[in-house]
Structures are given as structure tokens and as C-alpha cells.
Amino acid sequence: MNIFRLLGDLSHLLAIIILLLKIWRTRSCAGVSGKSQILFALVFTTRYLDLFTNFISMYNSAMKLIYLVCSYATVFLMYFKFKATYDSNHDTFRMEFLVVPVGGLAFLVNHDFTPLEILWTFSIYLEAVAILPQLFMISKTGEAETITSHYLFALGSYRALYIVNWVFRFYTEGFFDLIAIVAGCVQTILYCDFFYLYITKVLKGKQLTLPA
């Protein structure tokens, strides 16, 4: 464990908590893409199947559990409890356009052709593109609530910090996982446009609006 990975995990946890609290306290999931949340729940499910078979540390197991519980709780709130506030008209990105190619790629490019490893690879590739429905929804509505933009900033920062962690681990341990690194770079690049808007607008107290 290094400070960059710890900060990355805490940023990820912060994002998940921000979103869950936003939905719970405002009793509304307006402006939030349910499809991205379903994809994130799928990412954690396929990545943490080894939760009970491969013990790394208390921290690792606790975080995996928290991520799983919070992601399913968010999906539950969006599609059941506060379903009436779910903006399905703007959340129209076709999830199958992501899941099918990512599933095929996981079969072709992986470290080890075993079920667990292919599912882990699937979760890495899927996480890279899981935010697309959310970014697509914001581009359609042309704006995002400030709390949602804080969620996205924390979520985008987590994988950016992981890239720093991978550089650090490469130089200190000689460890690198090309699949995670390439997917992590793609994932972070997808946020660049949003990062620019967040820094130039939200941090100056303005509403996050996309040029129509």
C-alpha cells in the first residue's frame, strides 16, 4: 500500500458516499444515470468474487464489502425507492454497447484464461467505460447539480491517483499490470473534459453547464 493508492481508495469511497447521501437526503436521483450505477455494481460484483476465497487484508475485505453494499444500495434507491425521480428520458445510453464489446475483449486479452481472471479483466475494462452513460446524460441535459459534479470529480480523481500509484509501484517494486494501467488511462482520459469544466466553473461557484 502507498499513499497514492490510499488517497485513490478514499477518493473512490468519498464519491460513492457523496452519491448515496445525495440521493438519500434529497430523496431524489435527478441528474444521476441509473445505468452507470448498474454498471458499477456489475464491476464490483465481477471483481470481488474472490472476497471470501482470497484474503488480502482487513482493509481490502472491508473496502470491497463497503463498495458492494453501497453500489447495490444506490441502484436499489434509484430503481425502487425513489424510482419516481429517476430521469429515464435522459438516461438513454445503451448499456449493451458497453457490456458486449468489453465482455468479448476480456475473453481475448487477459492474464490467465480462467473464469475468475476473465471476470476480473471484464470488471477492469467495464469500469473504464462505466461512466459513459452518466457523462452522456449530462451532455443531454446540458447541466449537472453541483453535488453530482463533486461526485464525478472524486470518482475521476480515484483512478487518476491509481495511475500515480502504478508509476510509484513500478519504480519501487517493479510491479505493473498492463491491463489495469491501460484501462485506467482510458478511464481517466474520459474525465478530462469534465475535469476542465469542473475546475473552470464549479470551483468558481458557477453551475456546471455544458456548452449546448
Binding site: D50, I56, N60, H111, T114, L116, Y162, N165, D177, A180
Partner: peptide
């Protein structure tokens, strides 16, 4: 290389 399979990152 089995160290890849033992994914210690979240």
C-alpha cells in the same frame, strides 16, 4: 506470472 492473478488492489 501468478502475481497478476493475486490482485491486491481494489
Amino acid at each position: 506470472n501468478d502475481n497478476d492473478n493475486d490482485h491486491d488492489e481494489l
